[in-house]
Amino acid sequence: MSKPRISYDAFARIAPIAQNSLITMGRQADESGIDKTIIELVKLRVSQINNCAFCLQIHLNVSRKLGVPQEKLDLVATWEEAGIFSDKEGAALAWAETLANLAGHSVSDAAYAAVREHFSEEEVVFLSVSIATINAWNRLGVAFRFAPPIPKKGAAAA
């Protein structure tokens, strides 16, 4: 079992401007008007790809509070095969996977056209900001092994 290298609280104390900048970027995307459940599904999928337990747990907790169906939370890792995600959710998840997996290739015109079928130019900007922000959080969470905020038994999810 891996142990935290630096706690989230220590990170916030050491680099408050970085922490606040990432929070601000995320907040702007969250307040853009895109359905919050889509934003959370994207954050979950990117956190799965990047193996960030800290961010995965946070966004599972947020998703549950928003009322995202458990089936979607269970199957977001295999969204293409699950058959329960809307076309718009699928477009957002495909875009998230494209932006999370940039090593060795660029973003194709076809990938951009696919996301634009379901999102306006402004929405694609904010969806991309959300993906970029969770990617940054994932890299910090994985590098420092932030401990996931697991709710205590009997307590409501955070």
Results as ranks from 00 to 15, higher is better:
residue 51 N to G: 13
residue 52 C to D: 12
residue 128 S to V: 00
residue 153 K to T: 03
residue 132 A to R: 01
residue 106 S to R: 07
residue 80 E to A: 14
residue 99 L to I: 04
residue 112 Y to H: 07
residue 121 E to I: 00
residue 122 E to W: 00
residue 113 A to T: 02
residue 96 A to L: 06
residue 126 F to E: 12
residue 55 C to F: 13
residue 79 W to E: 07
residue 135 N to A: 11
residue 141 G to W: 14
residue 122 E to D: 07
residue 123 E to N: 04
residue 150 I to N: 07
residue 136 A to L: 11
residue 100 A to R: 09
residue 112 Y to A: 04
residue 153 K to A: 05
residue 59 H to P: 10
residue 106 S to C: 00
residue 67 G to M: 09
residue 110 A to M: 02
residue 91 A to I: 09
residue 151 P to D: 03
residue 54 F to T: 11
residue 55 C to T: 14
residue 118 H to I: 02
residue 143 A to Y: 02
residue 88 K to D: 01
residue 140 L to N: 09
residue 116 R to Q: 05
residue 48 Q to N: 04
residue 131 I to S: 14
residue 73 L to N: 03
residue 54 F to H: 12
residue 90 G to W: 10
residue 94 A to L: 10
residue 40 E to Q: 15
residue 70 Q to G: 12
residue 120 S to Y: 00
residue 119 F to S: 03
residue 38 I to Y: 05
residue 75 L to P: 11
residue 64 R to Y: 10
residue 72 K to G: 05
residue 127 L to E: 07
residue 69 P to Q: 12
residue 46 V to H: 12
residue 34 I to H: 01
residue 120 S to V: 00
residue 67 G to Y: 07
residue 58 I to C: 06
residue 88 K to M: 02
residue 65 K to C: 14
residue 118 H to V: 03
residue 150 I to D: 05
residue 36 K to G: 13
residue 101 N to P: 01
residue 110 A to N: 04
residue 83 G to W: 06
residue 104 G to D: 05
residue 74 D to A: 15
residue 54 F to L: 10
residue 87 D to K: 12
residue 47 S to I: 11
residue 153 K to M: 01
residue 88 K to V: 06
residue 108 S to V: 04
residue 103 A to Q: 15
residue 144 F to M: 09
residue 62 V to T: 14
residue 100 A to K: 09
residue 94 A to M: 08
residue 128 S to Y: 01
residue 139 R to K: 10
residue 66 L to Y: 15
residue 126 F to P: 12
residue 108 S to N: 04
residue 127 L to C: 07
residue 91 A to H: 08
residue 67 G to F: 08
residue 87 D to N: 12
residue 139 R to G: 10
residue 89 E to F: 08
